[in-house]
């Protein structure tokens, strides 16, 4: 499972990763639109640099281990690949935008201004990582603030850095456990809670919330059929008994 580790303390906000991403995916220049959110991500910007005081934080798709968007998509246009990337297949998409509702980080963006719109999001440069290369953004980073590798190894690197500089970092690897873990990890000296919607229970993955209801579907379907059949039989029998009683009373 591949992953990206972004060290907020090393980022200088140069936006080389943003430019590299735009070049790699042939994204057009961006204009501020009234349908954008203010975090810099848009249909033409798959990664952006947020600034909080003197800290620069790169925002991109977190590539959750159990992604809510993948479980939401009704046509399997979004897929979690074995390499770790959450990829999107526009030819399947029907444009329901349920993935945008489902994502706890608010990552997927939409081509609102196009007559034939698609979902737009970071794909972890799946075409590159599937042939053993690095994503464009980590290649471009001049300060190695954002690095690419195996998730286990990067977690170990992150924990080592915290151990080496316990005063510098918050003692937590962001993305290790949130919503069941993500493939994009953050090391930071400030709290990164503002990157996602306020979570009530950060440990459990979101698809778990629906899986119980979804597994109850076949029994509910059959059960309702049986219930209706039983009810019909019961009501018919009650009518019959009443009829017989009436007949009896009539004959008496």
């Amino acid at each position: 499972m591949k992953a990206i580790l972004t060290d907020v303390t090393l980022c200088i906000g140069c936006q080389e990763c943003v430019a590299a991403c735009k070049t790699k995916h042939n994204l057009e220049p961006d204009y501020p639109r009234n349908f954008h959110r203010t975090d810099g991500l848009s249909a033409r910007n798959w990664t952006s640099i947020l600034q909080k005081d003197e800290h620069y934080i790169r925002k991109q798709c977190r590539h959750c281990l159990e992604p809510a968007c993948v479980s939401a998509c009704p046509v399997a246009a979004l897929v979690k690949t074995p390499e770790g990337a959450v990829t999107y297949d526009g030819s399947k998409c029907i444009g329901c935008r349920y993935c945008m509702i489902a994502c706890p980080y608010g990552i997927p963006r939409y081509d609102w201004d196009r007559a034939i719109p698609y979902i737009q999001k970071c794909t972890l440069c799946y075409d590159l990582i599937s042939v053993g290369q690095q994503p464009a953004c980590t290649t471009a980073c001049p300060t190695e603030a954002t690095i690419f590798g195996e998730r286990d190894e990067l977690l170990a690197v992150a924990k080592q850095r915290i151990k080496d500089n316990p005063d510098k970092y918050i003692n937590r690897v962001f993305g290790e456990h949130e919503v069941g873990g993500t493939s994009v990890l953050y090391l930071s000296d400030i709290d990164l809670g503002f990157m996602s919607y306020p979570m009530r229970d950060i440990k459990s993955s979101l698809p778990q919330t629906t899986s119980m209801a979804m597994s109850a579907v076949p029994p509910a379907f059959v059960g309702m059929g049986a219930l209706m059949g039983g009810l019909y039989w019961f009501c018919k029998r009650k009518d019959k008994i009443r009829q017989q009683k009436n007949d009896k009373e009539g004959s008496e």
Partner: peptide, 18 residues
């Protein structure tokens, strides 16, 4: 967004999705 593909759930199955 793409209403002419509204029939896609018939051929692309994803039974975990509500």
């Amino acid at each position: 967004g793409l209403p002419w593909l509204v029939w896609h759930p018939v051929i692309y199955w994803q039974p975990h999705s509500a």
